[in-house]
Design a protein around this nucleic acid. Structure first.
Lengths: 166, 166
DNA sequence: ATCGTTATGTTATATTGTAACACGATATCA
DNA sequence: TGATATCGTGTTACAATATAACATAACGAT
């Protein structure tokens, strides 16, 4: 999460293996806790998603699963794995891109707040905390019972901005 | 916009014809101002979208256009009209539903903040103002240049809550 | 009237996602 | 230990959403 800007997540030269390890560790733990099985397929899908900090489409994941295998797997299998991972909060769906990305902190709540770079596709999950006051006010004034929050803020990441993209 | 809760938009028995009229008036004005043409097709699409305060899918719009006509129109025509209307900010796209809804105030900025009822599909556009402080802070801390804001808050609207849906 | 521009028509196809049913693996428990 | 229940995956077919590419039509300015 982007709550500690001293070491921003997904900086071009961060130690990404650590991200992957942390994510898989958290996944195993969460599955044990919830008595769910992180099967081979599910783990592979999660790995492929964590291959980057960019949202990945379901069919790209299918391609990834096909690498070095004889048989291609059919869409339903991928979507089932995705549903499973979404359900547990291990991944999020980025609606504006029809794509999936690993959750930074599956142990907590599962609102979905993202900064998305339109140039390099980097997606950074941000801490929803500072938005909860206005959301609460809105809930009160509107009479809505808000159950899911999804925010996608698109623009240029610092890196792309400095590189002069637009 | 949900900024005046004394007369909440889209209340079950509001005067919807007034909404439609206002929307079409605003559309004509905006087109004139931006020197764009609100053609027959574009206006029909806008009308169909304003038929309700619920997001409408592109193919539903196609069905609507087909009513009372000999020939069905093909997808590209609808998508072109939608693109045009989106571009001018006359409608918004609700990404979580792959659907389109009229903009409450096309004259101003075009961030997209919505409350969406998962039971009746009602979607209410809300005033982004109270979210601008946290967004600004985020922008500062992340180095992102945020250009588009999209928030979809899903849950139960007051009406459905009172009717006991869940 | 002609030309350039903009809007629409048309055909085909890409992309994303599901329904429905069959098969297989694993767990449990009599 | 074998019946059976449950869960996960395979397979086929298809639905729903969206776009590419090229043709035609409508319109506006000269």
């Amino acid at each position: 999460m982007l709550s500690n800007m001293d070491s921003p997540v997904a900086h071009p030269d961060h130690d990404h293996q650590a991200c992957i390890d942390a994510a898989l560790g958290a996944a195993r733990e969460l599955c044990k806790e919830k008595q769910q099985k992180l099967t081979k397929t599910r783990e592979k899908v999660l790995r492929l998603i964590w291959d980057s900090h960019r949202p990945v489409g379901a069919y790209t994941i299918m391609d990834g699963l096909a690498e070095g295998e004889q048989k291609r797997i059919a869409p339903p299998t991928v979507y089932r794995a995705l549903d499973f991972l979404l359900e547990l909060g291990l991944i999020h769906r980025i609606n504006s891109l029809n794509a999936y990305i690993g959750c930074q902190d599956p142990s907590h709540e599962h609102h979905c707040y993202f900064l998305i770079c339109t140039s390099c596709n980097l997606a950074i999950e941000v801490d929803p905390e500072s938005f909860q006051a206005p959301v609460g006010k809105l809930q009160e004034r509107s009479g809505f019972d808000i159950r899911q929050q999804n925010m996608e803020l698109s623009g240029l990441c610092q890196h792309c901005r400095e590189a002069g993209s637009d």
